[in-house]
């Protein structure tokens, strides 16, 4: 194990617990690494102190390939790799944005006359969100959860125009 991961403790077959120094890694990288393991492992994160996070990994199967030390090593490599890649991505953000803006900026084209006539922008409506674009889709269409759907409906702006084709909510 490297200097940044310590206290690796095997808790039994296919299970390992270790702490990482949270000040060394962006939380996004920690999440990115954890996400990679969700198919094979049960992953639990816990905060030990302001700067330390405990990671508990348990293999979903008793597969020999899922031994604890291997898991910890792989997790750490993923964590470091995600950190490295994110730093490079940050350096390139403006380049990617410039290319994307130039490539796709004109695809939608300017609004037509119909669009402009349909707009009703005033000081009271300028920041409304009648289509619920700013809401999470799961909130609006919570599958089979009528309560959640009701909550989403209640949360919609009071003066939002009803949609012509109202969303279907499965009971």
């Amino acid at each position: 194990m490297s200097e940044s991961t310590d206290l690796a403790v095997s808790l039994g077959a296919g299970t390992i617990s270790f702490e990482i120094d949270g000040s060394l890694y962006p939380q996004d990288a920690l999440y990115g690494a954890a996400y990679v393991f969700l198919d094979r492992c049960y992953v639990l994160l816990d905060r030990v102190s302001d700067n330390r996070v405990r990671v508990l990994l348990r293999g979903k199967t008793k597969d020999a390939a899922l031994d604890g030390d291997a898991l910890a090593g792989e997790f750490q490599n993923e964590l470091l790799g995600q950190t490295w890649r994110r730093k490079i991505a940050e350096d390139n953000r403006s380049l990617i944005e410039a290319i994307t803006a130039r490539a796709l900026g004109g695809a939608a084209g300017p609004p037509g006359l119909d669009d402009l006539l349909e707009m009703d922008v005033g000081s009271e409506t300028a920041f409304d969100d009648p289509l619920g674009i700013a809401m999470s889709w799961e909130e609006k269409y919570a599958k089979g959860k009528s309560d959640a759907a009701k909550t989403a409906k209640d949360a919609a702006p009071a003066d939002a125009a009803p949609a012509e084709d109202p969303p279907e909510v499965t009971p």
């Binding site: 999440y31 674009i133 700013a134 809401m135 999470s136 889709w137």
Partner: peptide, 8 residues
Amino acid sequence: RDGREVAS
């Protein structure tokens, strides 16, 4: 966190 939920 990764932005799937648009500005909720």
